[in-house]
Every structure is written in C-alpha cells, then in structure tokens.
Design a protein around this nucleic acid. Structure first.
Lengths: 114, 114
DNA sequence: GTAAGCTATTTAGTCATACTATATACTAGT
DNA sequence: ACTAGTATATAGTATGACTAAATAGCTTAC
C-alpha cells in the first residue's frame, strides 16, 4: 500500500506506544515491527522522531544497553503516563474509526436509492 | 471526543469526498454533516480548505446557486476522478484501519503471557 | 586489512493538512 | 440598527511524517 503517509498522522505514535507496551524494545526493532505489520515504508528516522517526542513528553523510561550486533541500543519501556497516553490513544482510535466506518457503511438518507 | 485533530489528518478529505458522493452539497452543509457524524469541532474554514483542494485537483464539479437562507451556495458533485479518488481512499482506509486493529488485538508474541 | 552489509542512533530540512481567527455578505426577526 | 443564522473566503500557525544523510559498531568475505 503506497502513500498512506497522511493517514498515519496521529496514529503512528500510538502504534509505537502499543509496541513499547508489549515489552522493552528499541527504535530499530520498533521500525521493523511496524514494517512487518504492513507499514513497509516506515524508516528509522520517522520512528526516531516519535521516540524523541515520547522522551520529551516523559512517557517512557530509557535504558541504554550494549548489543553484540552493533552499537548500543536505547531500550524503551512505558511509564504510568505512557500507559495512560496509550489508553487515551485507543479510545480516540475507537471513536474516530467507528465514526468513519459509520460514514462508509451508513444507509444513504434523504430517499436515496442504494 | 476532544483533540482528535491529528487523527483526522488524511481522512477528513476522504470523508468530505464520501459526503459529496451521496449527492450535491455545499461547504456549510458538509461541515454540519461532519459535526453530526461526531466530529463536533470541525469548522467551516477547515472544510473550505478541503473543498478548495478538491477544486484545485479537479475532483469535483461546481455549480453556484442562490439560497433563500443567505448568500449563494457553491454546490459540489464528484466527477469521475473524484469517484476514483474516493475508492482509493476507502482502500487505504481499510488497509490502515485493519492493520491498526490487528496491532490492537494481536496476541502478544515472544512467549509473553496474556 | 579492508570493503560490504547489517545493525543502530541521530539530525536537518521539507511537505501536507487541519487548526485558529477573522473578514465578508446575505436574510430574517427583534 | 442590531443580532443571529447562513455561507464563502483568507492569512497565518502547528503538528507530525517524510527525505536524505551522517555517524558508529560489529561480522563476514575477499
């Protein structure tokens, strides 16, 4: 699926939060998981800006650990604020996606034949 | 639901296209329909920028008609390109929303107990 | 030993899109 | 006159994902 960039705005951060909530992980791995999910065009730089924002907003704890596969990794875990943020994200997602699906499938009104 | 702005980026235009596809309508009425849908904070200016973009991209036909309720209305209908654009939008939406729902509900992997 | 390739973080700058806030204008009711 | 509802239009802002690249560590193959 190409050119879904704009549609990912406002949801990619939530996806990253969800991935982190499943257990300690780091930027590069998060990117790979998003790509596996189907968002194949997501690159490291994009995820980096998101994790930086999470750091800045104090939604994550950070621990730097060495890796045998390359340079040290910055591992993220959600803190309480991050957990709360994630729950709010899913509530917003449920709301927005249900409304859009409603629009998509709604019986046409005003006597329109369908 | 407050502060869903960012989540609407990339989908609001599609919603407007869908609303127009159901029959000739104009900016002010589109705004009201979006508000009725549940996107209560959408204002005329926002919809205007979208309809302007639709015009610029030649996705709509335009007809100006007088109104007894106020100034003349600019009625929009979808042309063939607009119809096609709408179909692509729904395909993208189905893809993205299914992937996000998948992430939301996916069984936790890597031996994580759920 | 060095080049290539994967791992991994970081940064600078761009673009698209929804937002705020306001101006304009027409009609109806007080 | 003035307010309120209808209706289009515009200037400027903020957000967030993008491109493109630099830097660095480790492994494998030549």
């Amino acid at each position: 699926m190409e050119n879904i960039t704009e549609m990912l705005k406002g949801v990619l951060e939530g996806c990253v939060l969800e991935i982190i909530s499943r257990g300690e992980t780091y930027g590069y791995e998060i990117t790979q998981q998003l790509r596996e999910l189907g968002f194949t065009d997501v690159v490291e730089g994009t995820v980096y800006t998101i994790t930086m924002r999470l750091e800045k907003n104090n939604l994550v704890n950070i621990e730097k650990k060495p890796s045998t596969m390359g340079p040290p990794r910055k591992f993220y875990t959600l803190n309480a604020a991050g957990q709360e943020h994630l729950e709010i994200f899913w509530k917003k997602w449920d709301f927005v996606s249900s409304k859009i699906d409603e629009l998509k499938t709604k019986i046409k009104s005003k006597g329109e034949v369908i």
